[in-house]
Structures are given as C-alpha cells and as structure tokens.
Design a binder for these strands. Structure first.
Lengths: 154, 154
DNA sequence: ATAATTCCTAAAGCTAACTTTACCTCAAGC
DNA sequence: GCTTGAGGTAAAGTTAGCTTTAGGAATTAT
C-alpha cells in the first residue's frame, strides 16, 4: 500500500513522465535519495515529484546532471523545500541562462562579421577566439583553434 | 614530399588545431574525403583547411556532425568552394542559429513566469510544453512531460 | 492461494564524438 | 641503408545519460 506522502517508483514515473529506469539512474547520480521499505523497494515522497520536474526543466535548458545536482544541493536538507526555495534556485538558474543566451548571441554576431568578409579561414577570424559558449561536452580534449595558424590564404 | 596544394594529415592537423585522430574520424563521417597517394597515405587539398574550420565553427554553435555533413553537402561538388559558397551556407546557418536563440529565450521567459508563481509543478506550468528547444541528444526516447499529470498540489 | 504486476540489482548496450592502444608500413633524414 | 618519425588500420575505451536484458523477489489483484 502507498501511504499518504509515500509513493512508489512507478507512481513517480507516471506523475513525472520519466521512465522508471531514468529515475533509478537519477538516484545513482545523487539527484534523488528515496528511502526503502521493508521489502527493499524505494519509497519516494511527494515533493520528489517537484524535484524531478526541476531536473527535467533544467535539462531542457541544457544543464548537465552534475550541474543540476550542485544546484539542488542548495535546497534545505532539514525540511521539505517550499515554493520560496524553488523560486530562489530558479532565479540563480535564470542568471546562468541569460549568460548562455548572451554567449550564443555574441557568437552569432561574430558569424555575421564573417559572413560579411567571407573569410572563414584561420587567423584574424573572430570565430576562432575560444572565449565563448562554455559547455563542451563529450570525451577528450577539445583543441582550440587559431594558435598555429600561419598562411591566411587558404 | 608535399606538393603544392597537397597536404598530409599531420599538416592539416597543425593548420586546423584538430587532432589527427579527429580528422580520420571526420573522414569516416563523410565530412572530408581525401585522396590517397601511392603508399596509401591521405592527401588533402588546401581548401580542406577551410572545410574543417567550418566544421569546428559549426560545432561551437552546437550543430551535430550529421547536420554539418548535410550543410556541407550543399557546397558545389565539381569545383573548389569559393568565398561566396561559404558565405551562402553560413547564412543558412545563421538562420538556424537565430531560431535556437529564440527558442532558448522563449524558454527563459517561461521560466520567469514560473519564478513568479513558484509553481514548478506539473499541470498548467508553461515549462512543461514540449514545443521548445529542439535538440534532444543522447540515446533513447525522451518522455515529454505533462501528459499524465493529475494532482496539482505536489 | 495463486497469478499477474511491479520492483530489485547488476551488467551490458546505445549514441555522439572522439581518443587510445596495438601493431604494422611508408617516408625522411643522416 | 637504416633508424626514426609520420601514417595507416582495427578494435576497444571514454563520457553522458539513459535503456535493455536477465533473473529474482516483493506486491497486488482475483
């Protein structure tokens, strides 16, 4: 039986639209920390619905699970987060989002300059400056361009 | 020996800043198609420097290699692409970029509404509408939120 | 009481975009 | 002419974010 304020993983999955396997995965990543009942099954609490909803929204914005875990860490540990708590972390969030949008916009404007000059070659091209759009994902080092450029005519 | 307009993979790597292994990988993905010399070594042409530069820039903007391959397909096959060719595909590119920025901005505005109401729960929340920020990457289905939501008080 | 669900864990698989490793060949320098 | 560096291939490894599979155990429904 599901007691008031205790929900099973299946119910949580239905309420959030997440797959059960995704929720289990999120637990391994420290995004939720359900208790267990006598039989070893996960027992979530109702506020976990909002917590996972936040995770999903944050992902839409392009944040990684690592980053989301950090942000969630700012919620109070000793009590169930209330609306004000969520509002606060959403605001921090918004600031980061604004930066992302600006970085992308700056990059676009540089592209405009390059469309004008038709360059798209190494040297001189503003697009080769690495100081934009932080999030490099995937494995391995990403080499930044422009450093060994020599012959501008290619 | 490296004849005028024929360059080795190592030279190309130096000129673009890419790793040799990355260039080989790009070949498997159909982003460059070097010829081979008698000994079986790849011989690129100078315009491949610009081609790969374009790939790197496009990646900065968040395009996938698949998408980049499509765009590169619009370049003329029968001759070396000139500045005008590059300008044209850069412009298409810019249009997509604009859309991305707008989608992100719309999403941010929705977040503003949600900061106001402090909701962040299923139902009613504008953030749960799936019609934004196209690029879902990674494997498997991504479940879209909001469909089974029932109890708004969580 | 028994069948049908739901849940559990551990391990392997998948995609993107590469890198690393292992092992072999070609090309350049002295 | 031989050593060394640059190149080549194929296969496996890496990260993120999950899903799938396999094989049990706990719940729920009848």
């Amino acid at each position: 039986m599901e007691r008031r304020n205790e929900i099973s993983i299946g119910t949580l999955a239905n309420r959030t639209g997440l797959a059960v396997s995704a929720i289990r995965y999120y637990e391994t990543q420290g995004l939720v920390a359900p208790e267990r009942n006598a039989g070893g099954q996960r027992r979530f609490i109702r506020s976990d619905i909002r917590r996972l909803s936040f995770v999903m929204i944050a992902q839409k914005f392009g944040f990684t699970l690592d980053r989301i875990r950090e942000v969630l860490g700012r919620l109070p540990q000793n009590r169930t987060p209330n609306a004000k708590d969520w509002t606060e972390i959403s605001q921090d969030f918004r600031a980061e989002l604004d930066e992302q949008i600006e970085a992308l916009t700056r990059l676009r404007d540089k592209l405009d300059g390059c469309i004008g000059c038709g360059c798209l070659s190494l040297d001189r091209c503003a697009l080769y400056n690495p100081d934009d759009v932080a999030a490099q994902k995937g494995a391995g080092p990403r080499y930044l361009m422009g450093d060994q450029a020599t012959r501008p005519e290619d």
